[in-house]
Computed example of a mutant assay.
Amino acid sequence: MNIIYLTDLLGTGVFAVSGTLAALHKKKDHDLLTLFIFAFVTAVGGGTLRDVIIQAYPVVWISDANYLVVITAGVVLAVACRRWWLGILRRPLLVFDTLGTGIFTIMGLEKALHAGVNAWAAVLLGIVSALFGGVIRDTLANEVPLVFERQLYATPCLIGAIVYVLTRPLPIPAAVHFLGAVGLITGFRLLAVRKGWTLPAIRS
């Protein structure tokens, strides 16, 4: 197994935990099938849309059952550890969602580049990979998706993806380059939440 594949599985698992915690946050008594659906759409919704756009068939979770195994494990882990996480993390949903967003932004960008997409379209597809699973998740939870609110949600993904593309020609080890971009997105997003940073409103 190569590092890209393992990282993709890691991002899938992180988003599966995020989707499960989002469902539990909305309602305390979901059954396991409902939790799996939330985890599934969060984990693979954005990546599936990206693969359809770039015509990368078969979609990865259809051809590789390991993704469904990881999603199931994420659901079980989130349910089993939900009270423990709430004890050590003030906002576990935010942490897992932000980490998954960082991983999938850069993973999606790289997959798009390998498919021959131009760099700036790849940036947008990286954002699609990272955010659209959450959009589907929030819609199912009957909540306004975070991407449509003023808080900085898509902006860290955009900045991290652009920095990643601009620094790609530099002689930086691939792992350091990847982790640096993921860390930039994750750190920027968490700091923006902590500081209450928002984009300026445009009024009609």
Results as ranks from 00 to 15, higher is better:
Y67M: 11
L68W: 14
L68Q: 11
V69F: 12
A73R: 01
A73G: 06
G74S: 10
G74D: 11
V75T: 03
V76R: 04
V76A: 15
L77G: 03
A78C: 14
A80S: 10
A80T: 09
C81V: 01
C81W: 04
R83S: 07
W84S: 01
W84F: 13
W85Y: 10
L86E: 09
I88R: 06
I88T: 10
I88W: 12
I88E: 00
I88S: 01
L89M: 15
R90V: 06
R91M: 11
R91C: 04
P92A: 11
L93Y: 14
L93G: 04
L94T: 09
V95G: 05
F96V: 07
T98Q: 02
L99F: 11
G100H: 03
T101R: 00
G102D: 04
G102M: 03
G102V: 02
I103P: 02
I103C: 05
I103A: 03
F104M: 13
G108Q: 07
G108Y: 12
G108V: 02
L109P: 07
E110I: 12
H114S: 07
A115H: 12
A119I: 00
A119S: 08
A121G: 13
A121E: 04
L124W: 07
L125V: 12
L125W: 14
V128I: 15
V128G: 04
S129L: 11
L131M: 14
L131T: 15
F132G: 02
V135M: 15
D138Q: 06
T139H: 02
T139L: 14
L140H: 02
L140R: 05
A141F: 02
A141E: 04
N142D: 14
E143H: 14
E143G: 13
P145D: 08
L146K: 13
L146P: 01
L146C: 11
V147I: 15
F148D: 02
E149V: 06
Q151F: 05
Q151L: 05
L152M: 11
Y153E: 09
A154W: 04
A154S: 14
I159V: 15
G160T: 03
I162S: 03
I162D: 04
I162F: 13
Y164K: 09
L166V: 08
L166R: 05
R168K: 12
R168F: 05
L170Y: 01
L170R: 01
